[in-house]
Design a protein around this nucleic acid. Structure first.
Lengths: 238, 238
DNA sequence: TCAAAAGTGTTCGTCCTACACCCATGA
DNA sequence: TCATGGGTGTAGGACGAACACTTTTGA
């Protein structure tokens, strides 16, 4: 190992975020329009440099607060995705990016942050092409979240503090892009101890019509055993 | 974003490896004894600085070759674990570490590499305490590999090119620390298309006694659907 | 002929799937 | 009273857990 801090070409480290949410039953991602070169005018994932006194996680949470304008991001789900370190990712210099996924319930209207021209929620399917290798990061984030839904209780992170089982099911259907059988989904969720717990006596009307649905809160469990596998789209799973 | 490369305190980026293998039915990890301060004389995970023209993946593979002395590491399983970036991880300077897990079949006798006093295979249970935050990295690697065995075909990475189902089962039992039912394990593996494929007409004696076992090769599949869940150790899974 | 390891069969329960059906509410 | 969404019931099949049993080898 080396002692001279300046012996090598310096690395910059950034924390970039794939912030996902569900708007009107459609998966959306938070994007910012770049205000400067390179890729000026292109859309990109929000993020920024990790400061000397921060961990990448801390930096990611700070950036999340800045970009979304949320006053309290402490309770939001934030998870490290992976690190992207190819030498030519950024034409300016050597940049190593630690990518994170963040999941939001009811998202706020984002306001263009300090270093971004503007920020906007964009439907996942129409996002891209993005700056740098952010297309790949976003695709990795989607794949990861989809996989996590299968064997963790992550789906509640997309929901407000109190939610109906119909809303929870919509999270699965939106992220996976498949329809699920409602009775079976409900049984599966309720049979998993600690996944959700009912709010006593509470119910809410959802679509303006229909029977009011019981409200639930997220439970203490984090893992889902046995898992809730997404339907194998006929035949051999990929 | 900033343009001045030297505006911030420089970050160093390292690639560290949790190299796992199975020796005599016991999970082992490759450790190096540090030859210099800090933590001189302590054991640590092998690794080193990412060079300016390398990705973290490339650096990890280079380090793996150097530490193990293997001439061909191209076919070995190497996977990014996560990135550790707390500000005080290294007393000398700001070091961000991209950690990897590597899985080896029959491991070679390691020879002390260039910058390490010596390298050695250590049983997983007796490893530690290690230098820096390597105890945590190693624990994360073990947890990750254990989880991967459940829903990927990763286990074959621990096996030589041709192996018996008994050896494959031993991988699961060793990493998970639990016993599995042999008939059921065999059926499960064979029922998963692409997990393993038989080597025509080949068989091998394993323990000196008993019926020779059919030999198998790793198949083309990577995911395991439905998964092969580790036994829930009585009652509620963690 | 015995021990050891591979491989096969069978039973039984549990879980998943698929539907059909009932309930409560607003229009 | 109809459409809409929430909630319950149930029959059938697939899968997994447990364990008995057969086969093939070396000692």
């Amino acid at each position: 190992m080396e002692y001279d801090k300046y012996a090598h070409e310096p690395f910059a480290v950034t924390a970039d975020l794939a912030v996902l949410t569900i708007l009107d039953g459609v998966l959306h991602v938070l994007l910012v329009e770049r205000g400067q070169e390179p890729y000026q005018g292109h859309w990109a994932l929000p993020g920024g440099f990790v400061q000397p006194d921060e961990s990448a996680e801390t930096a990611a949470r700070r950036e999340l607060a800045e970009e979304t304008g949320l006053s309290d991001v402490s309770g939001l789900h934030l998870e490290q995705l992976r690190t992207y370190s190819e030498p030519d990712r950024d034409p300016r210099m050597r940049v190593v990016t630690v990518a994170f996924t963040a999941l939001l319930p009811h998202p706020p209207e984002p306001h263009g942050g300090s270093d971004a021209a503007q920020a906007r929620w964009v439907p996942y399917d129409t996002a891209g092409p993005l700056a740098f290798d952010h297309d790949r990061i976003l695709a990795d984030a989607h794949e990861r979240v989809g996989a996590q839904l299968e064997h963790t209780c992550l789906a509640t992170a997309f929901c407000p503090p109190e939610f109906t089982l119909g809303e929870l099911q919509q999270v699965y259907e939106t992220v996976w892009g498949t329809a699920l059988d409602r009775p079976n989904f409900r049984r599966k969720v309720l049979a998993t101890p600690g996944f959700v717990e009912p709010v006593p006596g509470a119910a809410r009307l959802t679509g303006g019509r229909g029977k009011p649905a019981t409200l639930y809160r997220a439970g203490a469990a984090t893992t889902l055993r046995p898992p809730l596998l997404r339907p194998t789209s006929e035949g051999r799973p990929a």
